[in-house]
């Protein structure tokens, strides 16, 4: 026994490194740690670099565009015909297309999304919730190109049986499909907002004799307002940037109209249309998609900021 202990101690002392060796090893270790940390930091910087590059490219190409096209024409001209012999560069028709399709989408997503979220958060059992949420996730995972097919070849023909004079390309069908597409996002953000409302508020409401529905409408929804608005705003942002559905099903002609039954191109559809053709690098047509992209980026950026501020607010309250 003693022998064994002695042998072990021998072993340990034999492996005991000198002070100098420890110092060297520690230094190597610190150096390695530093290299790793710097590597991780560089990886984290990629998203900053990407953001800066996006802004730089949008601005520099747009700058070339605005050298030819005065900003005032861009914002007020009612025609967008950059590829015609007599070109006009008014963003309004494209903007109108984007606004109309997004509005139709919102008219679908806000009522459906809010009611679904109230049901999931206030009425459904946790088992129902756990089964339904993955299915909703699937709805959000369908590729947008497939939604485009759906809008053009299923939804629009179905709508045409109701309104026989609806053209094959229109903003109504894709708008509805966009609404369905952003529904999972709206539901999950709204539900988050409502579940963040403290239980005591509900219990107080029940204590004075309110039903579940009254509690939901008059206590939970008002308390979750900023979170709900955040959900809608982030939904709008997604709808505005949606590309393939409108590119396929809303038509390619810029058309300044507020009537969803008409065909019209959106900002995103225009970018796709130009990208499909073969415009030479540096031409005004090439630059025009960056100017259009800049408008889109500014819009979604504003909506995202607003949405995140609203979301932060409801988190701060409770």
């Amino acid at each position: 026994m003693d022998k064994a202990v002695a042998a072990m101690q021998d072993g340990i002392s034999a492996r005991q490194p000198t002070v100098a060796a420890i110092g060297a090893r520690r230094k190597a270790r610190q150096r390695r740690e530093l290299v790793i940390e710097s590597g991780l930091f560089l990886a984290a910087l990629v998203s900053v670099a990407a953001t800066v590059t996006i802004l730089a490219i949008l601005f520099s190409e747009s700058l070339g565009f605005f050298k030819t096209v005065p900003l005032i024409d861009f914002l007020t001209d009612t025609l967008w015909t950059p590829l015609f012999a007599n070109p006009h560069y008014g963003i309004l028709p494209l903007l109108a297309g984007t606004v109309v399709t997004s509005m139709v989408g919102l008219l679908v997503a806000i009522p459906l999304g809010t009611v679904s979220a109230i049901y999931l958060s206030e009425f459904a059992s946790s088992r129902t919730r756990e089964t339904i949420k993955p299915v909703l996730e699937l709805l959000g995972a369908v590729p947008t190109i497939v939604y485009g097919y759906f809008a053009l070849l299923v939804v629009t023909p179905a709508l045409q049986t109701l309104w026989s004079d609806l053209p094959g390309f229109n903003m109504l069908g894709p708008g509805i499909v966009i609404g369905i597409m952003i529904l999972p996002l709206v539901i999950s953000l709204s539900e988050d907002a409502m579940r963040a409302v403290p239980m005591v508020l509900r219990e107080g409401s029940y204590a004075v004799g309110a039903t579940r529905l009254q509690t939901a409408w008059r206590v939970v929804v008002p308390a979750a307002t900023s979170g709900l608005v955040a959900a809608y705003v982030l939904g709008v942002s997604r709808a505005v940037g949606e590309t393939m559905v409108v590119a396929i099903a809303a038509g390619q002609n810029p058309n300044l109209t507020w009537n969803p039954m008409e065909p019209a191109a959106t900002i995103t559809a225009y970018i796709v249309q130009v990208a499909l053709g073969d415009l030479p690098h540096g031409s005004i047509g090439y630059q025009s998609i960056f100017a259009a992209g800049l408008v889109l980026a500014v819009m979604t950026f504003a909506f995202n900021m607003l949405g995140h501020i609203m979301r932060k607010r409801f988190r701060e309250i409770y």
Partner: peptide, 25 residues
């Protein structure tokens, strides 16, 4: 803080803008 803001922001950028980035860069 800046890195976190850009990550949140990139998550909300429409995918077609990434296309424009790629086309330019």
């Amino acid at each position: 803080e800046l890195i976190e803001v850009t990550v949140t922001n990139l998550a909300g950028v429409p995918s077609i803008i990434f296309g424009l980035l790629a086309l330019g860069l």
